[in-house]
Design a protein around this nucleic acid. Structure first.
Lengths: 78, 78
DNA sequence: TGTTCTAAACGCATATATGCGTTATTTTTA
DNA sequence: TAAAAATAACGCATATATGCGTTTAGAACA
């Protein structure tokens, strides 16, 4: 990811997902297990290292017992 | 994309984005121009051929003068 | 029929998300 | 402080999203 705007977007998304995960009192490992994706992927997303795909966000939403709308409901820091 | 669930997700997302685009009376070319992404990408997303990344969905949302929440507000066909 | 507009469907190179490990670091807890 | 738990930070292979172009197909229209 070289684009600055994308980095900020990914960072904001990551913080939001982390916040949702902690609200549910889940560890990254538990969330990864429920979403059936590698824990490394959860970490990279929360740290804002990658621009996740919609399919990954979807399984994360399911694992958090919420929906895509909630997962992308965040504000970007300028 | 080999996963069946991901295909259905991408198809539902594509139909929804197409619907939003047509509501705004934009061609794929116009949307691509506004979002500053290749028209081929718009087509592939609308046809459900790919699992778009959040950054791509974000620029599409901006081009449609809406937000990410609206772009991912769709139901998946079973 | 020919022209224009729109979208589909290609091909291809490159960037990067994903998947799966391991090791290091930090935080929490006993 | 020591141990355990949680997370970060690697490396690496593979799948695939993206970017950019061209060609084809279809519809609308003159």
């Amino acid at each position: 990811m070289i684009n600055v705007k994308n980095k900020k977007l990914a960072a904001a998304l990551g913080e939001h997902i982390r916040s949702l995960r902690l609200q549910k009192e889940l560890s990254q490992e538990q969330l990864a297990y429920e979403a059936d994706i590698p824990i490394s992927q959860i970490g990279r997303i929360e740290r804002g290292e990658i621009n996740a795909t919609v399919s990954t966000l979807f399984v994360i939403a399911e694992a958090l017992k919420t929906d895509l709308k909630t997962v992308v409901d965040f504000k970007i820091k300028k």
